[in-house]
Simulated assay, not measured.
Amino acid sequence: MRGGSVVDAQRRMTEILNGAVLVPLVAVAAELGLADLVADGPRTVAELAQRSGSLPDPLYRVLRGLAAAGIFQETASRTFAATELSDTLRSGADSVRALARLWGISERTSALGHLGDTVRTGTPAFESVTGTDWWSHLANHPEQAAVFNDAMGYQVRRVHDATVSGYDLSGVRRLVDVGGGRGYLAAALLRRYPELTAVIFDQRAVVGEAERVLDEAGVADRAELVGGDFFDAVPEGGDVYVLSRILHDWDDERAGLILRNIRKAMAPQGRVLVVDAALTEGNHPDDGKVMDIVMLALHPGRERTLAEFGALFATAGLHHADTLALHGAASIVVGVPV
């Protein structure tokens, strides 16, 4: 029986299916801030309900379900304490609370529940569920946009830290951060490399927010803010172009267009650094493969294998020259002119 019994396989599948219930429980705990409430010691359900604005009996049932998975611990009847897992949901810079709250956005969860529609039609399920795309939805729901931005901030900080320490930019004079947002990555790189100058390029409504970040980092005098659309053109003359968590938002046609615009603009010996998941081939566990399913349900984009990156680069007159694995699912995929 492929190395195990039918009963074992059925039990494992049941565990997988039951795990779908655990995610909303974690999201509720994150939304209510329960981990913060037990940070200084055990609390009764009555206390937790009062402090979180919830009802004792349903809250107890949620906490009991979480404790069964090691997230919180029932230390006495209807009294709960922290565990290592629940501590990850406490507020703070290294917390995954915002990520857990993101999993609690009902429209996002509904899109994943309608993944079969995407498999049949090729259209992101989010659009069929809500009648709009993810980005337009966030623009019309600022409270959800705030949750999303907090969650992405946690992930981006980890990726940025790994990027700064993972790739040597010694000798580079001009870097262009395409889709650079508020400038956090550029600011970190400018601090690390005193001879470097940088262009932060993004939509005009976004890139202006980078001024504060650069000022606080003390590197504003070596940075230029440029607004525009990377589907039209990107700033010229860069030695290195960075695309951090950008290409995975787009299908191959539009991702290729971004790369072609970079190829036209870059210096003759330039490089493009794509910071995205680089999916492993075969059956190996890979967080990027989970991320790719989220992309499938929500966006027209995708995570890619190295072979797919190579093919995408080729459409833009680039050659896949190197790959550096970073923290978690992220890698730096390096392209150079053919």
Rank of each mutant, 00 (worst) to 15 (best):
S170H: 13
E143N: 14
R2C: 00
V199S: 01
G237D: 02
L63H: 05
V275D: 04
V38D: 00
F126V: 10
D40N: 04
S170P: 11
W250F: 12
E143Q: 15
L112Y: 15
V119M: 15
A329N: 12
D94R: 15
E209A: 10
D177F: 02
A35R: 03
R78M: 12
R302H: 09
P268V: 10
F72S: 08
G153L: 11
L169I: 12
L85T: 08
E236M: 06
E281G: 09
V207K: 05
S54E: 01
T83G: 07
H137P: 02
N149T: 07
A205D: 13
S52K: 07
P42H: 01
T88I: 04
T75S: 15
L259I: 05
Q50W: 07
R108P: 00
H284M: 07
N140I: 01
N140E: 14
D87Y: 05
P24V: 01
A68M: 11
V294T: 12
S106A: 15
H320K: 08
L296H: 09
G3Q: 14
V159T: 12
V213M: 13
A145R: 13
M1F: 09
V178H: 00
Y193D: 01
R61Y: 09
S54F: 01
V119I: 14
D36P: 03
A145C: 06
E31R: 13
T305A: 00
A297H: 04
M13P: 00
F313R: 03
G183H: 07
P235E: 01
G328V: 14
T163S: 12
F231M: 09
G328H: 12
V23M: 05
E211Y: 02
P194G: 11
D57Q: 07
Q50H: 13
R191N: 10
V240Y: 11
A111P: 15
D249Y: 07
L324C: 05
G131A: 07
A220S: 14
A29Y: 01
W103I: 08
A49K: 00
Q144Y: 11
G33I: 02
H319I: 07
S86Q: 04
G41M: 01
S244K: 14
A146K: 15
V207P: 04
I293E: 13
T280A: 11
R173Q: 14
R43C: 09
G181A: 10
L312C: 08
H320C: 01
H160C: 04
N149E: 13
R192M: 07
A186H: 01
D87R: 11
R212N: 07
E31I: 00
V129L: 04
D40W: 00
